[in-house]
């Protein structure tokens, strides 16, 4: 095995960076968020956006679909939404020419490249669970017939962190299927000023450049060629193992606040997101810094805190910060009184 060479990597890095630039141009003041979203897309993962209404979550999804030339369908999740409303259903159809009627499959909105599940936590657990197979297997099984979803397929879901009345918190199994959970926060005054001064009625500009689906597949292939060194993969494994209270290198905050640690899927997500981050940085290998940059987005929604965390006002961000500080990346074990400066 050999590393992807610089002349091979550079065009892909430029292309991936151009996606971020285009998103930055469409949505102002969200560069870090856009980078993480692109990393999530390049990692072929699903993304959960959390933020109060009006912050541009839906617009981000639409812009992403537009820039990536992907088909995007939006579903507003409500309590009475049924699985069939998302997955599709078989309907009885008259055949032309007076022939026998037959059941024809009517695909639901999930048959798109990007499914924007708006306010996903307002749907019932039954409907939420309908997404499980689609998110993991990228296929839909209905009446015993499995139908593959378009490639690529992403779920971009949004949920409102307030107004919890009448909502159904996502089960752990589904939360775990999201590669990233990204918090969409308010922008500062300058950005707001730019928005209202350059966007009439808030309408975003049309993208100046788009990435074709073939180019996107090439990007995926390039990400696959990013090398994960053994030392870095070991670091990822130790990091994920340390999220468990019974783990060998768990921190004090993990032991105190975490009731359920991250799954192996989190380790896979860290590795994949690290690869995408390395590609965006123009490097052929995943570095320790790449892993650290995506750790919050990967682990933040996967750690289940106990009641003590709520009592002490501790969130997963503090716990992950603690982990990143305490776990040495390289695992070089030296006596306490000997340190490498």
């Amino acid at each position: 095995m050999s590393l992807i060479q610089p002349d091979e990597l550079l065009p892909h890095t430029r292309r991936a960076t151009s996606i971020i630039d285009e998103l930055d141009r469409i949505l102002l003041g969200r560069t870090a968020l856009h980078r993480l979203v692109v990393i999530g897309i390049l990692s072929r993962g699903h993304i959960l956006l959390e933020g109060v209404p009006g912050l541009g979550k839906t617009m981000l999804a639409k812009a992403l679909g537009d820039v990536l030339s992907l088909e995007l369908k939006r579903v507003q999740f409500t309590p009475d939404l049924m699985p069939g409303d998302i997955l599709g259903t078989n309907i009885l159809q008259e055949s032309d020419g007076g022939g026998p009627r037959r059941l024809a499959f009517q695909p639901g909105p999930i048959f798109a490249n990007i499914l924007l599940a708006d306010e996903i936590n307002r749907a019932s657990p039954k409907t939420q669970s309908a997404l499980l197979e689609a998110m993991q297997e990228r296929a839909v099984t209905l009446l015993g017939v499995t139908r593959p979803l378009p490639d690529p397929f992403f779920v971009m879901a949004s949920q409102n962190p307030i107004e919890f009345e009448g909502t159904y918190p996502l089960p752990e199994a589904q939360i775990d299927r999201f590669l990233f959970k990204l918090n969409v926060t308010n922008v500062d005054v300058d950005v707001l000023d730019d928005i209202i001064s350059t966007r009439r009625r808030g309408e975003p500009p049309a993208p100046q450049s788009r990435v074709t689906q073939d180019e996107l597949r090439e990007l995926f292939a390039a990400v696959d060629r990013i090398f994960l060194p053994k030392a870095v993969s070991r670091y990822i494994a130790r990091l994920v193992a340390a999220t468990h209270p019974e783990g060998p290198e768990h921190t004090e905050s993990v032991a105190k606040y975490v009731s359920l640690g991250a799954s192996p899927r989190a380790a896979i997500a860290l590795a994949e997101a690290g690869r995408a981050e390395a590609l965006l940085s123009g490097r052929p290998t995943v570095g320790f810094d790449d892993v650290r940059r995506v750790t919050h987005a990967v682990l933040g929604h996967r750690l289940m805190l106990g009641y003590r965390g709520r009592l002490d006002g501790i969130g997963t961000r503090q716990v992950v910060d603690d982990l990143l500080k305490s776990i040495d990346e390289t695992g070089v074990r030296l006596p306490e009184d000997v340190t490498i400066a």
């Binding site: 095995m1 050999s2 060479q5 090398f227 060194p229 870095v232 290998t285 570095g287 320790f288 390289t330």
Partner: peptide, 25 residues
């Protein structure tokens, strides 16, 4: 090697040099 990679922010190249040939890097 991994330690130097992490501390000197080599982006995994130094750590990878123990595993694979770096080629043009």
């Amino acid at each position: 090697l991994s330690f130097l990679d992490a501390r000197q922010h080599c982006g995994g190249l130094a750590a990878a040099s123990a595993d694979v040939p770096l080629g043009g890097w």
